[in-house]
Design a protein around this nucleic acid. Structure first.
Lengths: 185, 185
DNA sequence: AACCGTACCTAACGGCCGTTAGTTTGGCAA
DNA sequence: TTGCCAAACTAACGGCCGTTAGGTACGGTT
């Protein structure tokens, strides 16, 4: 699954054959069917694990003590980025292959996916309540914009050029205060 | 090309066969070779057109008069979103298929892609110089975060639930001032 | 009337695809 | 020692893939 998820990230689901996956782990294609019912089932398992990794990272961040509301928020951003880059290729595979996954697979994943998104919605609501986020923040849109910033880092983040801690800080700060000076508008 | 680009967005490049494309436009697969040398060449043409559409939208926004620096910025955001949703499926196809495109195709596209990114880099530099963006803004990172927010809207934007004008306004405002109140940090 | 180029079609090629049925291997348990 | 079961293997199936060679229809030009 590790190798399959990695290949899915690089080549896409349809661009990766079972023979390629099997060959990468020193097997033959048919042998994969001892472990998975089908290629779709393999993808489904990977997508699920991708969510599980994100959820675990989120819950760990939740459990930690934080000095300020901003620290708490930044810790969650860091956790999401950690799920993308530090805990196997599952979350990355989820983010990159979900949109074009076969409908049956997508439909099976959606409910679990929703539960992760709900955690973020709750978090953002709390930040509104304690005055960290503006009262008129469009929570749904805000979450999607934040996800966009975090997830598309897959296309350009290079660990040799910057740390995840730094990226988490930049994204968190940007999300709350923006890059502007406030001089206009 | 219209239909092919649309199918690439929905099913991915590898997930779309030439027979499917041909069938959609009332042709046979072999006939496509009168117009394109190969499937890769078709993709390359689509990706190029995707950039051309973005560039044209950018230049049109550039040519318009604007009351404030913020208006100018928002106008460019709106232009990019317009390229994604209002001028055919080419830009959307570019954004969604570029990462997993065959290396030869990607390599051929990169230089043209860079030219579009350079336009944004220049714009952001100007915003720093006129005091709209903070002097210590990490331009490169800022552009990628902005692109992330705009481009991943493909996964969730629904024209029946919100206008592009509104989305452009939310993204622009968020980019400059954030969603926070400024009470923490 | 003869010709030409454009735009398609037909039919097939070799090759890879996901999948399956049946078989082999090797370690552990009885 | 025998039996069992997990974990692989082999070999093939039908089917779809990108691609190609050669043919056909047809409007416009000479």
């Amino acid at each position: 699954m590790d190798e399959a998820a990695h290949l899915f990230v690089v080549q896409g689901f349809d661009g990766t054959s079972l023979r390629t996956i099997a060959n990468t782990v020193g097997m033959k294609a048919g042998s994969l069917y001892y472990h998975f019912d089908s290629k779709n089932a393999l993808l489904e398992a990977i997508l699920n694990k991708g969510i599980a990794v994100m959820v675990e990272a989120f819950d760990q961040a939740q459990a930690q003590p934080h000095a300020t509301a901003f620290d708490r928020f930044q810790s969650h951003v860091r956790a999401h980025l950690g799920a993308l880059y530090e805990n196997g290729p599952y979350t990355a595979a989820h983010v990159t292959t979900f949109r074009t996954a076969p409908p049956e697979v997508r439909d099976a994943i959606v409910p679990i996916r929703d539960s992760y998104e709900a955690k973020w919605t709750t978090l953002l609501h709390q930040l509104v309540e304690d005055g960290t986020l503006a009262a008129d923040t469009p929570i749904g849109l805000a979450r999607l914009i934040l996800f966009g910033a975090m997830n598309t880092s897959i296309e350009w983040f290079d660990a040799s050029q910057g740390t995840l801690d730094n990226l988490a800080q930049v994204i968190s700060r940007q999300f709350l205060t923006g890059f502007g000076t406030g001089d206009t508008q």
